[in-house]
Design a protein around this nucleic acid. Structure first.
Length: 492
RNA sequence: CGGGGUGUAGCGUAGCCCGGUAUCGCGCCACAUUUGGGAUGUGGAGGUCGUCAGUUCGAAUCUGGCCACCCCGACCA
């Protein structure tokens, strides 16, 4: 706790890492590329899960669970998808260990115990799910099938970063089956809207909704929709994706249904997901050099009460006062904790709760007892105010909303300021290097141009924004005609 | 996966070049005094020096393999 966080402007990655570790969100584990999500980090993830899960249920989805392992033959059924993930799959080849005859006390893989068919540790579950759906769907009456699962997946990444990219991560994956293309498309966009709503209303992170280009599309999808967020260092982060899978998986797994006319047709599919990567987005959107900043709607603890006292008697008196306050706040559904730890001084506690991002801190000392007041400190602005004890609930309730709004507004303002329209390649490179952020520019629509720009500048097309205004122009790279601007950025 | 770097108490480090079992700070435990922004004093505990092997009378120190982490590139949510 004594360690101070590396300032953002000194070293942004180090700052990020410090926040994750020092705010007790997660830690590196003994397993390469895998992290331990610590209680404080997991509590935030649970808040995210609760909010998202409710939105999924409200839109008619149900949860289920599918296996971690996918037989190789199933995995390779949808070729494009399989190819897309092949390079990063963990594979189970054996089912037993035995004592090492050469080395007492050690174990070796039993060569006798080779699996007849290798099992792939899921990097995503389309294969096993569509193989299962085949047995569940016969008629249009079985549709739509709207299922989500909360699970872990494994993608063997070369280079990992806590929350942003780890070999194993937690996520939810929705997999739906529909009778018509239109319905599947509506579902795809509906879930994109759910994600955007969640990001903006709960995470206080503004996002751009858009469609991916062919290069960036999910392997096996006809179209990939996404929400893109902008971090404080000007790099983009894909925060969620929703895929229109067409009939690709239905064909690969032979999932047909009888329509009202009795004719057989392949079903239409979608899949959509967000992961613990959202934790990274949350951190890099709001936090500062003092530590984590959590928007009230995702804060496991919204209010922390810190007593400032002299002697045991002093603590007793304040505890009674604080206990009453705590009860009143809890009645308003505000999550609140009383930090009565005896061995730490108030200043230390202030710093610690700041580091952990608790939105509101209430200080109560002798003076407050005498005057019937409370000292309120807000995490987002680091400002303090003194209020009357009587108005505590109404004040705090309003303050939490205000903090939530303020965080969103600040992030939205930043995104606006960091989004630049450019019309020449010179300008494009200059903005990327000197200002960074989102860059709106004309593009000729070809993968070749996209590749070239990526090679030369490391910027990728994050998306073609939805509801993009038509605008005549010429591609900044090739000079060919273009009808709309697309969103470029360097990305995580 | 390629190039570079690092690994010594829970954390951060000195020692390594020039071999002789380890320094300092924070934290931890006990007691006392403290408590409105990271307390102070006194006493105390804590180490197979990342790991495995080699060289040597003797290895934190020299050599090699492995592992992990960090930075840069390729890949990706």
């Amino acid at each position: 706790m004594s360690k101070v966080i590396t300032p953002q402007e000194q070293d942004y990655s180090k700052w990020y890492n410090d926040i994750v570790v020092e705010a007790d969100l997660a830690d590196h584990s003994a397993v390469r590329g895998c992290m331990v999500i610590k209680p404080h980090g997991y509590a935030i993830w649970e808040k995210m899960q609760q909010a998202l899960d409710k939105m999924f249920k409200d839109t008619g989805h149900v949860n289920a669970y599918f296996p971690l392992f996918i037989p190789k033959s199933l995995f390779e059924a949808e070729e494009k998808n399989a190819e897309g993930f092949a390079k990063e799959c963990a594979v189970v080849t054996h089912y037993r260990l035995k004592s090492d005859p050469q080395n007492k006390g050690k174990l070796i893989v039993d060569p006798e115990a080779r699996l007849e068919e290798e099992l792939i540790v899921r990097p995503t579950s389309e294969a096993i799910i569509w193989n299962t759906y085949k047995g569940w769907i016969q008629s249009y009456r079985d549709l739509p099938l709207l299922i989500n699962q909360w699970a872990n997946v494994v993608r063997w990444e070369m280079r990992t970063r806590l929350f942003l990219r780890t070999a194993e991560f937690l996520w939810q994956e929705g997999h739906t089956a529909h009778a018509t293309k239109e319905e599947a498309l509506i579902e795809t966009k509906q879930m994109l809207d759910v994600y955007a709503h969640f990001a903006e209303k709960f995470m206080a992170v503004p996002v751009i909704k858009g469609v991916k280009t062919a290069n960036e599309r999910f392997a096996g999808a006809d179209d990939t929709y996404c929400i893109e967020a902008l971090m404080q260092d000007g790099k983009a982060l894909q925060a969620g994706t929703s895929h229109f899978l067409g009939q690709n998986f239905a064909k690969a797994f032979d999932v047909k249904f009888a329509n009202k006319e009795g004719k057989l047709d392949y079903v239409w599919a979608t899949s959509w997901g967000v992961s613990t990567r959202l934790m990274g987005a949350l951190i890099m959107s709001h936090s500062d050099n003092h530590g984590l900043v959590i928007p009230p709607k995702l804060a496991p603890t919204q209010v922390i009460i810190v007593p400032i006292y002299k002697g045991e008697e002093g603590l007793q008196k304040i505890s009674v006062y604080a206990g009453e306050l705590k009860k009143r706040l809890q009645e308003k559904n505000i999550s609140v904790k009383f930090d009565s730890r005896d061995s730490l001084r108030p200043g230390f506690k202030f710093a610690e709760h700041e580091l952990k991002g608790i939105p509101v801190r209430i200080g109560i000392g002798e003076r407050d007892l005498e005057n019937g007041t409370l000292e309120i400190a807000r995490r987002d602005t680091l400002s303090k105010a003194s209020i009357k004890m009587e108005e505590a609930e109404t004040y705090i309730e309003k303050l939490l909303e205000e903090i939530q709004t303020n965080l969103y507004n600040k992030a939205a303002e930043r995104m606006k300021n960091m989004t630049t329209k450019v019309d020449t390649y010179q300008e494009f490179k200059k903005v990327l290097d000197e200002k960074s952020g989102f860059v709106l520019a004309h593009w000729d629509g070809t993968s070749e141009t996209e590749e070239k720009i990526k090679e030369e500048t490391k910027a990728t097309i994050r998306c073609i924004p939805l509801n993009n205004p038509e605008e005549r122009g010429v591609c900044i790279y090739s000079g060919k005609p273009s009808t709309q601007r697309v969103l470029f950025a360097r990305a995580y």
